[in-house]
Design a protein around this nucleic acid. Structure first.
Length: 474
RNA sequence: GGUCCCGUCGUCUAGUGGUCUAGGACGCCGGCCUCUCAAGCCGGUAACGCCAGUUCGAAUCUGGUCGGGACUGCCA
């Protein structure tokens, strides 16, 4: 039997990294087994669903390279792959269940049900002990599935092993709301059956719902898929990763200077390991060795420090041309203008040095802004190195040394400035920092000689001069 | 309260009865390199929640206990 897996996100918010991790595992499993990866949109909650969010989901998947074989946009043999298009079908399924005596209309009010739950709780019974089929049949109210009480529900979960739920612990859940809209349980199970889903790999938060899904699947005559419940992603505080922890939406990382390959790699290490001594690996390698049965049972904390490190690893490993192209995008966006030819050349002459020290793509503009426009030294940098004894001498000595240069390149600049250090009998640290601040506007910058070479003699000399004047004036 | 899940360094994990005085990675600390910042290199820090039991032998098996978590809706 061929593997058919799906992800079924609800478009009720920007796609969460936890859902993306689940998508990744499903995708890896499909690619590893040569199976089919399906994208279905679970938009039964019409109130909260929005196309903007569906677009966000698709954009996120595309960004990461998680291509789907069937589903929204790409189509397939099973219709639209959007649940809101199939409401009539779900209603038929629900009413058919009622006709066969496997489900029933529940005429009780929410208040009555609430009361029953309270009673059950006070008696320390299963909370839904009393939420069962009333003695007298009704024809109005939401439709509940009548949970068979004769046998426990058992299944073998690919990550958790043998699972067993007592029938009495499963409540008669609603499958069709009184307004005729199907619930998640009905729509999801119906689709999984119709689409011939073979494996359902989803978050562990759905584990308690699984017995319901199995029972429903059997009731509508489908074959039960193999389940794999993935460990949840936690925030630093050990609670389910949520908005409270800041950036839980994939979009935040897409816009935050992270490389998609780095994100993929990081997500793959959460709950899965490719081997004892490896952390960084390619997508192809992950596909090669991934299997749902190897997924860990325990929850994983989403560690931003490690993500940042992996991102740096990927940035340094990028092809120089790719890095430059990505950097250009960031720089132009930050500066609000496109780079002129000479701007671009200046950047390219030190791009290798920038690549080595970039952790996030969005940090690039600040590192090289001095190449494109005049930069005023920030107060901290100025106070730290310029308000010191002998700085004026350093500035003028450097200026005269540099202005006498015939060739303007890294070697000659370094030669000139080393000579200056000897003349002044001061160390490199003390003698070069003022020049760095004067030229780049900051105590932190790419290497000085290369930066000067890239900027050009005219600008360098002018900035040294300007710094000297600012020093004299203060 | 109930049902269910989980428990190896701060974090992600390797580990399936002996090769574990528990390995790797991030982080952190120290050093080297060095024009700043990174990167790189070297070294260090730090864990089998606890108690019984099984066994010649347990991180690995069993029971209990403690701790954490998810679910408990006409949301998904």
């Amino acid at each position: 039997m061929s593997v058919r897996v799906r992800i079924a996100p609800s478009p009720t918010g920007y796609v969460h990294v936890g859902n993306i991790r689940a998508a990744l595992f499903n995708w890896l499993y499909a690619r590893h087994t040569g199976g089919t990866f399906i994208l279905r949109i679970d938009d039964t909650d019409v109130e909260r669903s929005d196309v903007e969010y569906e677009d966000d989901i698709k954009a996120g998947l595309r960004w990461l390279g998680l291509d789907w074989d069937e589903g929204v946009d790409v189509g397939g043999p099973h219709g639209s792959y959007r649940q809101s298009d199939r409401f009539d079908h779900y209603r038929e399924v629900a009413h058919d269940l009622v006709a066969r005596g496997l489900a029933y209309h529940d005429p009780r009010s929410p208040e009555e049900l609430e009361e029953l739950r309270k009673v059950a709780q006070s008696e320390k019974r299963h909370p839904n002990y009393y939420i069962r089929r009333p003695d007298t049949p009704a024809t109005t109210g939401p439709i509940r599935f009548s949970v068979p009480q004769d046998a426990p529900v058992e299944f073998d979960d690919m990550v958790r092993g043998d699972m067993r739920f007592e029938a009495g612990a499963v409540d008669d859940f609603v499958i069709l709301r009184s307004d005729g809209v199907p619930t998640y349980h009905l729509a999801s199970v119906t689709d999984d059956v119709d689409y011939r889903i073979s494996h359902v790999a989803r978050g562990e938060d759905l584990l308690p719902s699984t017995p319901k899904h199995i029972l429903l699947t059997k009731a509508i005559g489908g074959s039960v898929p193999t389940y794999a419940h993935l460990p949840l992603l936690f925030g630093p505080d050990g609670k389910k990763l949520s908005k409270r922890h800041g950036d839980t939406s994939l979009r935040a990382y897409r816009e935050g200077g992270y490389l998609p390959q780095a994100m993929m790699n990081f997500l793959a290490t959460l709950g899965w390991s490719i081997g004892a001594d490896r952390t960084v690996f390619t997508v192809a390698e992950a596909i090669e060795s991934f299997d749902l049965v190897d997924v860990s049972k325990n929850p994983a904390v989403f560690d931003l420090d490690k993500l940042a490190w992996i991102n740096g690893e990927y940035i340094r490993a990028q092809d120089p041309e790719d890095f430059e192209a990505g950097a250009r995008t960031e720089i132009e966006r930050s500066m609000g203008r496109s780079l002129a030819a000479d701007d671009w050349e200046r950047f390219r002459s030190i791009s290798g040095l920038v690549q080595e020290r970039t952790k996030f793509m969005v940090d690039i503009p600040d590192q090289v802004r001095f190449l494109f426009e005049e930069v005023a030294a920030d107060d901290d940098s100025w106070a730290k190195v310029m308000d010191k004894e002998g700085v004026a001498e350093v500035l003028s000595a450097a200026s005269s040394r540099l202005s006498g240069l015939d060739t303007w390149d890294t070697e000659s600049i370094e030669g000139a400035l080393r000579g200056m250090l000897e003349d002044l009998e001061i160390g490199a640290r003390k003698g070069l920092q003022p020049l760095r601040v004067a030229v780049t506007g900051s105590v932190v910058s790419p290497p000085l000689f290369e930066s000067m070479a890239a900027l050009g003699s005219e600008s360098v000399l002018a900035r040294l001069d300007a710094a000297g004047r600012r020093l004299a004036g203060s």
